[in-house]
């Protein structure tokens, strides 16, 4: 047999004939044997009957005329149309504000993309060699050699320019 709690849970469904045949049978058996649940059942049944009788009368007045609602509909349609363009301007202003705020929002985050590379690029050294000197000038050959990368990038790079007379 089901418990009192289960019976009370299903008693309204029992009154309204909305339980499965098996559950209905279980509730009926419980109500036959439990005086307390049976008294609750009678009270719920009385309330259900009363509500079924009276509730359809609640608010049983004449609703507003169709003309009133129809006029309101037309007014609403006209108002919505005139409000369409200001809405678009408002949306545009919101979009612009968001775009303006993006740099401020990004500025508060850690910029990892701006860090220097961990392995500096190797340097090339140019070594000039004077191969021939004539009255018109000198001929110079440059020897290019690669030096190992420094631990830290040099802040300035100096070039020993060789000027010709």
């Amino acid at each position: 047999m089901i418990s009192c709690k289960q019976c009370q849970k299903h008693v309204i469904g029992y009154i309204n004939h909305e339980l499965s045949p098996k559950l209905r049978d279980q509730v009926a058996k419980h109500l036959d044997q439990c005086e307390f649940c049976y008294s609750l059942y009678l009270q719920h049944k009385r309330i259900t009957n009363e509500l079924n009788r009276v509730m359809p009368l609640v608010g049983n007045y004449r609703p507003p005329s169709f003309e009133r609602v129809w006029n309101a509909t037309r007014l609403d349609a006209a108002r919505r149309t005139s409000n369409y363009y200001p809405l678009r301007y408002g949306m545009a202003m919101v979009a612009i504000t968001v775009l303006l705020l993006i740099p401020f929002a990004l500025g508060r985050t850690n910029q990892v993309l701006a860090d220097p590379p961990t392995q500096p690029a190797p340097l090339l050294r140019l070594t000039p060699n004077v191969t021939a000197a004539t009255d018109e000038g000198i001929s110079v050959a440059f020897e290019i050699s690669q030096t190992p990368a420094p631990a830290k990038m040099p802040s300035t790079l100096t070039l020993n320019a060789i000027s010709t007379p």
Binding site: G59, N60, Y61, P63, P64, V69, A72, T73
Partner: peptide
Amino acid sequence: APSIYRLCYGLLMNRQDAEDIMQEAFV
């Protein structure tokens, strides 16, 4: 309209409010 009006009145318990809300719903 009759059933919608009864619904609104049953929930709001006031005729004026029920009429206004019913009108809003129909619009």
